[in-house]
Structure formats: C-alpha cells, structure tokens
Amino acid sequence: MSSHAIPLKEATIRNRQGLWLFFLTEVFLFGSFFVLRFSLWGDTRPELEQTAGLIATFVLLVSSLAMNRAEVAIAHGDKTKFRNNILVTFVLGAIFLGMILVYEWGALLGLHGEVLGIPVGHILPGDGVYGSVLYLMTGAHALHVLGGLVFIAITLFKGMRGDLTVKDHFFAEACALYWHFVDLVWVFFYPALYLIGHVVDIH
C-alpha cells in the first residue's frame, strides 16, 4: 500500500487508463455476442417492432447528449445544470430500459396486445436461435444500462453532496464515459438486431 500521496493528476490518468482498458475488455465481450449473431442468424433476422426500436434508440442517443451536458456542467461547478441534465439522462435511460423490457421482452414478462399503441414483444428465449441471440444481446446490454442507471444515481448523489469538484470530478467523467460506451454498444446492436438481413418467420 502506497504511503506516498499520489498527485491528483497522476491518479486521474491512472484511473482513466484503467477505465479505457475495462472498455476494451467489454468490446471483446460484446464482440463475442456479435459473432454469435452473425454466425447463427446470417443474413436473416426475426421480426421486431421497428417503431419501438427507432424511438428507443433515439431516446438513448439523446440521453448521451444530456450526460455530456451534465459532465461539462460539473466541470464548471454548475450544480443546478448538472442536476437537471443528469436527471434527464436518468429518465431517458429508464425509458429506454422500459421500452426494451416491454417491446422486446414482452412475451417473457407475460404482456399481451399493445402498450401505447405499439405491439409488445412476441419472442421468447426458447424460440430457437432467434429468441436466444435476441435475449442474450438485449439482456447483456440492458444489464449494462441498468448498471449505468445505478452509476448515474450515485453520481447525482455525490454531485449534490458536493463530492465532485471542478478539480476532482473523475467520478462524473467515468460515469459519462461509461454511459457513452453503453450507447455506442447499442449503436452497433440496433442495426444488428433490427436492420441487417431479411425478416424470417421464426415459428
């Protein structure tokens, strides 16, 4: 255990490097799901609710923008702007998570018919390779989103308590980077699940 005090700048650089290396491991984790998708689905895909997918993607991307505004705000010490923006991020992230649960995992959760005029998901994990890969990919991503929401909530709490300062706000930076990373994963997952290949009847 070090008893030399590490300068803040150096500690931040180390933390940042560690974080980016962690993202690298995540890239390979999600990469293995991509391999499964393209190996098992090829140029086909199951029928998913396009409207829901488009709205959810849009919501998630906008949340990334708000996250960025929040990070910039805390870097300038603007607590009100930070709070507002990170709350927007949280709400949009929660909406995304809810939409995935309803419109993709609907059948598993026992939903039927339509929610807000859009048909709920009809695929089950047991529906062959289509159901399996869909649930694996959306599940892995949704859990990262869930983790991100917890991360955001902690960041909000710490920011409001005054733990994040203009000089030392790596926690907020890490939260923002993580959230952008989760969005970026979805930017690749969305076309892989919704757009690439022709629709086949999975039943």
Partner: peptide
C-alpha cells in the same frame, strides 16, 4: 484483455 472476455461471453 483481448481473449478472456470472449470466453466469458461464450460461457454465458
């Protein structure tokens, strides 16, 4: 860093 996460994903 490049290999082990792939084993993790496959294992899942």
């Amino acid at each position: 860093i490049g290999g082990t996460p792939v084993l993790g994903g496959t294992g899942l």
